[in-house]
């Protein structure tokens, strides 16, 4: 039997101590994930800054920053005094996934440069990673 956590991770937002990124980035990512998987849909109202801060157990200023950045990216829309909702940007979920992929690729490119790898070397490694993933999925089937 599983414990249904209610107090810890009240609303499913949580801060990972092993995650070295700033807390506001973690909050941003968890909001984007909700939109990417379709739990939060276009135009849907989202919690107020103070509400989400209380739910996630983090400071108001941190959530405020996450909301500001999400607004800048067009992920959410905030109306003064009316709260925020998910942007009505078609295909937002896909865009978020793509953005995430681009971030990982940028990281890979940076490490590649550091190691002196050319584009072909990186491509080879990417293919190898895809092969490994396909093999591990076969094992599960």
């Amino acid at each position: 039997m599983y414990t249904e956590y209610t107090e810890y991770m009240k609303d499913g937002f949580f801060i990972a101590q092993t995650d070295k990124r700033p807390i506001y980035l973690q909050i941003m990512e968890q909001i984007k994930q909700r939109i990417a998987v379709g739990d939060w849909t276009e135009g849907q109202g989202i919690p107020s800054i103070r509400q989400l801060a209380a739910d996630a157990g983090v400071s108001v200023i941190t959530v405020k920053r996450a909301y500001l950045e999400l607004e800048r990216e067009g992920v959410i829309v905030t109306h003064q005094g009316k709260g925020s909702h998910v942007g009505s940007n078609a295909g937002l979920g896909t865009k978020i996934r793509e953005q995430e992929l681009d971030q990982h690729l940028a990281q890979a490119a940076r490490l590649g440069t550091l190691m002196g790898l050319g584009p072909e070397d990186l491509e080879k490694r990417l293919r190898a990673a895809q092969d490994r993933l396909a093999r591990s999925e076969e094992e599960f089937v």
């Binding site: 009240k10 103070r50 509400q51 801060a53 209380a54 996630a56 157990g57 983090v58 400071s59 108001v60």
Partner: peptide
């Protein structure tokens, strides 16, 4: 948790 809840 309780302290952040106060700040609502």
């Amino acid at each position: 948790r309780e302290l952040t809840a106060v700040m609502e």
